[in-house]
Design a protein around this nucleic acid. Structure first.
Lengths: 130, 130
DNA sequence: TTGACATATTCCTATATAGGAATGTATTGT
DNA sequence: ACAATACATTCCTATATAGGAATATGTCAA
């Protein structure tokens, strides 16, 4: 199977950075499509398509004003994401304090060096050809 | 172009529901792959693949313990998502109070009926054939 | 009614999955 | 050294984009 549709839920919809940019832009007040296009520097059809996705998952609302369509972020629909991430808040607090403790006890703090892949042990490189 | 890779950032990685389930499961304590498989009822190769994605974006850490690999959620990596959603918190608070005001002033509260598509006006259906 | 303006949709395509099946790799106990 | 255990990776495929280009649809003004 392929990935779930972008319209399947808010998590999938906001995975696209431009859609997040649009949501940010439309949070304060409603705006017509043209302004989104100009402000974010995207192609008009692209904006329309992103708005369609956002609309389908309820992340934005629309209202017609003459020939323009006024879109606006529906913040309420972002709440589930906020709540999911929130359940991890206490964990990163714990992790931070642990890191702090170490930093105080030693010099040269571990210095998070990005994703930590586990090296394979396939060979020992101990000089023995085996 | 296709959608961005699931490994391009945390937003894309957590769009998949099973990966969120895994993150939830691994938040409290590290666990070997086998336990994830049993507890969440997923196929082992599937779990391994999801873990790989999560590892690449730094959402989990690993550590080897004999023949087992102990994975654990790196809550810190979820923080950016939390912070992004947080910027909308004040908006949904405002929206809620507005809704409350209406609910108190009138009977029949609007009753959120899901995504609100704007009906096309193409035809008026007013009885006139044109 | 016609033209201009504002948006939406369709078509086409390269790319990236996610799942299932099969297989590869690493590590320990004996 | 070998079997068993625990994971990871590869292969294959149906599906879903996201962007660009072209076009359709809707609405207002004269």
């Amino acid at each position: 199977m392929a990935r779930a549709a972008t319209t399947s839920d808010a998590f999938n919809a906001v995975a696209e950075p431009r859609r997040r940019a649009i949501l940010n832009y439309l949070a304060m007040q409603e705006r017509p499509v043209g302004e989104i296009v100009d402000s974010l520097g995207l192609e008009q059809p692209s904006v329309s398509k992103h708005l369609r996705v956002l609309l389908e998952v309820g992340l934005v609302n629309v209202r017609r004003d003459g020939r323009r369509m006024l879109y606006r972020t529906n913040a309420e629909a972002i709440r589930p994401l906020h709540e999911w991430t929130e359940t991890f808040e206490r964990f990163w607090r714990h992790q931070l304090s642990r890191i702090k403790e170490r930093a105080e006890g030693k010099s040269n703090p571990p210095k998070d060096s990005g994703p930590h892949f586990i090296p394979r042990r396939k060979h020992d490189y101990d000089g023995n050809k085996n």
